[in-house]
């Protein structure tokens, strides 16, 4: 398999390690785009998911919004927005956020909605305020599932952020698009490897967050 040779050649070329086109710079850009997009998507998806999940209302509307958002093609949206708005970070953020909101929204909603009703009723019976029920009873129990939604969203963002390179932004996609036009497979395979590794690191981060944040009593399996 010559793919491994490409990987080796790519990473051992010292020219790939510094400057505006170096791996550290491109990696940083990629993490920057991904983290920003995830933060924006979470800022939209989490509150809406928590509230609708808590009240149990609006499930159908949410499912509809999520379906519509998922149906929008990220790549097409990116190209369209760049044609209309020109370059910049915003044209990349819009499709990435639209990509990431549905998994966060839907899993958060489902997670809160499916919390065992007995402790919730007990809390309500004790006279707990609804917001305290949400944050102190439902949220801790729902957390593992909410994190899994965030995790899927993060993985999709990391993988999809590569398309930013097509509209001349940076990130690891730069190597893939440049490699396509320069017919340099070393770059393509190297770039794809970096993206896959970044995805695995993302998984590891979420695993660690899960270990730290999820109360031992709720941990499943």
């Amino acid at each position: 398999m010559n793919v491994l040779n490409f990987v080796n050649a790519f990473f051992s070329d010292s020219a790939h390690w510094h400057g505006y086109d170096g791996i550290p710079q491109r990696l940083l850009e990629h993490v920057h785009y991904s983290a920003l997009a995830l933060a924006l998507a979470a800022a939209i998806g989490l509150p809406v998911g928590l509230i609708t999940g808590h009240t149990g209302r609006g499930g159908n509307a949410l499912a509809f919004i999520a379906t519509a958002a998922r149906a929008l093609p990220s790549f097409g949206l990116l190209v369209l927005i760049v044609i209309v708005m020109g370059f910049g970070l915003l044209p990349v953020m819009i499709p990435l956020v639209i990509l990431a909101v549905p998994p966060i929204l839907v899993t958060t909603y489902e997670a809160v909605r499916t919390v065992d009703p007995s402790p919730v009723d007990a809390a309500r019976g004790m006279g707990m305020h609804e917001s305290r029920i949400l944050f102190q009873v439902e949220l801790p129990v729902a957390l593992p599932l909410i994190l899994s939604g965030l995790r899927s969203a993060a993985i999709q963002i990391v993988s999809t952020a590569t398309i930013a390179a097509y509209v001349s932004l940076g990130g690891l996609g730069r190597y893939i698009v440049d490699g396509l036009y320069q017919r340099n497979y070393e770059k393509v395979v190297g770039g794809a490897t970096l993206v896959a590794v970044l995805a695995l690191v993302t998984l590891a981060v979420f695993w660690a967050v899960g270990r730290l944040a999820v109360s031992p009593g709720v941990r499943r399996r």
């Binding site: 793919v3 993985i155 990391v158 993988s159 999809t160 590569t162 398309i163 097509y166 996609g173 893939i176 698009v177 490699g179 396509l180 497979y185 393509v188 395979v189 770039g191 794809a192 993206v195 896959a196 970044l198 995805a199 695995l200």
Partner: peptide, 13 residues
């Protein structure tokens, strides 16, 4: 891991 490989890289290879 396969899912994390960007589609464009997949196409090009």
């Amino acid at each position: 891991i396969l899912y994390a490989v960007p589609s464009l890289a997949f196409f090009v290879v």
